[in-house]
């Protein structure tokens, strides 16, 4: 479980997160949605510790993560996996080297054991033949899958995904969504996904948090979202003419 309690974060005079309290359950795909610039990336980066919050608290299970020093955070970070918007694979390393890096740095496993784990993770994301390829040689979908493999190689308890579908075609997006969802269930991970892709919301959104102008505006499930009585959420969800027509047809 990951919990944010009264989180406030500002950059200069601009308050980006305004007193946000929210809880993300274990074994669920939790989605943070909102328009561009609403503060969802700042919330995700605050949850993961890339931004230090101004006030409030962030809990990883029973541990108050936001109060930990650099050393103590480092211990928790070994349980954290993150998939960045652009993949963030190390350009100078091959796919296998990227996935193996956390094992090299933080485990005492033999080279064979490490390669076995790397092969398992790459197989899990259907990248069996990409070991020796460099990130510049991969397609967008392959980069995301390699990033997922790297994120799960240490058996994380918490998985953060920053717009994992951005720049991907609808079919590849569904593959990535399902992969993240399956991994979450398989390993009972607390997964938080930052997205503005409504397909993801309707496919895998077990808990959805809508952020609007730095505030938590609404939360619920994918079933609730279609019937929510919230104008800003409705504007966001049914932004396209096609979605509006579909809603009218359902009504």
């Amino acid at each position: 479980m990951i919990k944010a309690q009264n989180v406030i974060k500002s950059f200069g005079d601009r308050t980006v997160l305004k007193d946000i309290s929210v809880e993300f359950a274990t074994g669920q795909t939790n989605l943070i949605i909102g328009r561009s610039g609403s503060g969802k990336t700042v919330l995700l980066k605050s949850l993961v510790g890339l931004h230090n919050i101004d006030s409030g608290a962030i809990y990883y299970d029973d541990v108050c993560f936001s109060e930990l020093d650099f050393k103590a955070r480092k211990a928790i970070r070994k349980d954290v996996g993150m998939i960045f918007q652009g993949g963030a694979l190390l350009d100078a390393s091959t796919v296998a080297q990227n996935v193996k890096l956390p094992l090299d740095l933080f485990t005492t496993q033999s080279e064979e054991e490490k390669m076995e784990r790397v092969n398992f993770c790459l197989n899990r994301v259907n990248l069996d033949n990409a070991h020796h390829l460099y990130p510049s040689e991969l397609s967008g979908g392959m980069i995301k899958r390699a990033a997922i493999a790297r994120a799960i190689v240490m058996n994380p308890r918490y998985l953060f995904c920053d717009e994992p579908n951005s720049g991907l075609d609808p079919q590849t997006s569904i593959v990535i969504d399902n992969l993240i969802h399956d991994i979450t269930k398989e390993y009972n991970i607390t997964t938080i996904i930052n997205t503005h892709d409504m397909n993801s919301v309707m496919e895998i959104g077990e808990k959805i948090v809508f952020i609007y102008e730095g505030n938590k505006w609404w939360e619920g499930s994918k079933d609730d979202i279609l019937h929510a009585d919230n104008r800003e959420l409705e504007d966001f969800v049914f932004a396209s003419a096609m979605a509006k027509r579909a809603k009218l047809a359902v009504k």
Binding site: L50, A75, R77, K78, M82, A88, P102, L105, F106
Partner: peptide
């Protein structure tokens, strides 16, 4: 950021 998240 990815390295920092890994604890590196």
């Amino acid at each position: 950021d990815a390295l920092e998240i890994m604890g590196v």
